[in-house]
Amino acid sequence: MQKVIIKPGYHIKPKYDLHALREHVKGDHSKGAIAGELPLTSMIDMFTILVIFLLMNFSATGEIFFIQKNLKLPEASRSKPLESAPLITVTAQGITFETQKVGDNPINLTESDQNLPRLAGALRQLKIMAETLRPNEPFKGHVNIQADENTPLVYIKRVMQTCIVEGWNSIHFAVREPGS
């Protein structure tokens, strides 16, 4: 006797039919599983090489602040490692103390532009804080200055002058190693 009612089955027939996947989803493993084990050996090899490379490049010092994109540090070969100290950034646009803008760099400096009252105030406040926190230690007065290599020295010198007047006598110029 001929069947009249036929149960509908899989009827989508694309050009590239993934019949093996379809059978795997259905649970028919008679034709062999298509999901083989992922070969992990090469991946672990790559990870290990990456870890060794990064560990060899690891350094606990030397990068304690961010350099702005448009700022290229000058090169120096006889430099010393960077120490943690307040950072003053001098760019063509202005002067930044840590993350706070404390002065502008006008194209033509006048006599009144030589003073940097906001920078002086920030340095004074930080010095008072350092002396309050460590009353028994002498104040070291270390400050880092970073500036683009083509910055005219007039902008650097007025920042230095402000630092010295406020008692920050040990001025470190951030430089990069040749070829880095």
Binding site: V51, L55, N169, H172, F173, A174
Partner: peptide
């Protein structure tokens, strides 16, 4: 767990990597 450890290590080292070594030249007026 081995892959987990390596992945975590790689992420940590990539984030803390020093791509440009910064040094200083010092002038001391004191």
């Amino acid at each position: 767990p081995f892959i987990d450890l390596l992945s975590t290590l790689i992420c940590f080292l990539l984030i803390t990597a020093v791509w440009q070594q910064i040094n200083v030249l010092t002038t001391d007026s004191a």
